[in-house]
Design a protein around this nucleic acid. Structure first.
Length: 411
RNA sequence: CGGGGUAUGGCUCAAUUGGCUAGAGCAUCUGGUUUGGGACCAGAGGAUUGUGGGUUCAAGUCCCACUACCCCGACCA
């Protein structure tokens, strides 16, 4: 991609209302643009990152047998009346023609449960799990912290259906491991911990995945020995002790919730009367689990974790491009050489963003740091004199000269 | 939802006790110069000051209402 063709621009001045580092940097670098409180537009750079995060998640869900589907954004309110969730205060309500009552789905239990019911008759149809990656709507009393807490946000939600609690337990563990693989791939595996948390309205307890970060809204108590934590909301229930080893020597940390998994059991199968015939032909309630992770929140989290005073430092797995090619100087010769290199890289399948503008060196280099692509290549009079290209990693301070002839094999 | 604050070109801000044609920087456009860390010179365009009402000879400025946004808290599948 040539920078001159890229929709979205970097900006020197920042949004006055950008609170967190992720809101500030993502806006300034041209990844997102705020539509209104807690609602964002994803520009090309931002969408590329979001898509990569989604694909990492998608691969792991497929690996545990998840079937990807896409459910609707809106649903008749009566489904929520059936479960009692129509009273949730974060629910967006709207009216259709004839004053029909509709809601924008905050999650999809009310949709997926009756859906799965239509295709599940006996134990032979179970277990099964389905997931989708879609935008959710929650009328948060207070949206904040950029992508960390929005009113419309992107989420992967998976739902599993089982004949027994044991089977649910089994699958739940598999998904838990899949989640850790996701965090590891995103580069936050070592700072993300399994956290015992409240199950909200639907189950007594749940497991959250919490990433240590100062801006995190959640307070958790971390057990260094077991590498698990307890959310503050249930620390009293746990009597201030680690649920795995019992020690009360826990470290208080701030963290961002980057995933949450629940054993729903029959919380939803019951109101919808979702039963299957067992091997004796007797009807039994289906046991359910649900598993949520937010790509958009993860994108914000990654920026919170990986940035410096100059800008974002994307992990390679999710960076919008692998290489940021910068040509410095107005000489036609420089531009020609840069273009040659650009074409070679593209041909080789390297994702490259070429800053082909006539902007000053300072402006281009500052933008490269702000955007945060892992590898920066500079072509200038200086480098051409040595038939070389300057290579610098965004997360390192020193640059090195690489011969043009050797460059392609290096990348 | 309680408390506090803000609203002025695309962005960041200014405008004396209410007073003349609402200023500047960034960005944009034109010309020139410049190219290894957000360059410089000259010129240009761009605003019914969030919306509605009120007070006044006169309102960006004062009053009321509404809306949006931000902060603290509460809330948070």
């Amino acid at each position: 991609m040539r920078y001159s063709n890229l929709f979205g621009k970097t900006s020197k001045s920042i949004q006055a209302d950008a609170d967190s580092a992720n809101a500030k940097l993502l806006t300034q670098a041209g990844f997102v643009n705020k539509q209104m409180a807690g609602v964002y537009n994803y520009l090309p750079l931002g969408l590329r990152v979001l898509t990569k995060i989604q694909n990492i998640i998608r691969a792991e869900m497929n690996a545990v047998g998840g079937n990807e589907i896409l459910m609707p954004t809106m649903t008749q309110e009566s489904s929520y009346v059936q479960t009692g969730r129509d009273k949730m205060d974060v629910l967006f309500h709207l009216k259709g023609r004839d004053d029909s009552e509709l809601v924008l789905n905050p999650t999809h239990e009310e949709v997926v449960t009756p859906l799965a019911q239509k295709y599940t008759f006996s134990y032979r149809d179970l277990p099964v799990s389905v997931y989708q990656i879609q935008n959710k709507f929650r009328n948060e009393p207070r949206a904040k912290s950029g992508l960390l807490r929005g009113r419309e946000f992107n989420m992967k939600d998976m739902y599993s259906f089982h004949v027994s609690h044991e089977d649910l337990d089994n699958y739940y563990e598999q998904v838990k491991q899949a989640y850790f693989k996701i965090y590891t791939k995103l580069g936050i595996g070592d700072i993300t911990v399994l956290t015992y948390a409240s199950g909200g309205v639907f189950s007594k307890y749940s497991h959250e995945f919490q990433t240590f970060a100062e801006v995190g809204e959640d307070t958790i108590y971390f057990c260094g020995k077991c590498k698990v934590a307890v959310n503050k909301e249930i620390i009293d229930d746990q009597k201030g002790a680690c649920p795995e080893c019992g020690t009360s020597e826990l470290e208080e940390r701030q963290a961002i919730e980057v995933g949450n998994i629940f054993k729903l059991a029959d919380k939803f199968s019951k109101p919808f009367d979702f039963e299957y015939a067992d091997s004796n032909g007797k009807n039994q309630l289906v046991q359910m689990g649900c598993y949520g992770i937010g790509p958009s929140r993860l994108m914000g989290t990654l920026v919170e974790i990986f940035h410096d005073e100059k800008g974002i430092i994307w992990p390679k797995e999710v960076a919008p491009y692998a290489v940021h090619l910068v040509s410095l100087g107005a000489d036609e010769n420089i531009k020609t050489e840069a273009e040659k290199l650009y074409n070679q890289l593209v041909e080789k399948g390297v994702e490259v963003l070429w800053d082909d503008r006539d902007a000053s060196a300072g402006a281009k280099l500052a933008d490269a740091d702000l955007i945060g692509i892992p590898t920066r290549l500079v072509v200038s009079k200086k480098t051409l004199a040595e038939e070389s290209v300057e290579l610098k990693e965004r997360n390192k301070s020193e640059a090195e000269m690489v011969k043009m002839s050797e460059l392609l094999s290096r990348i």
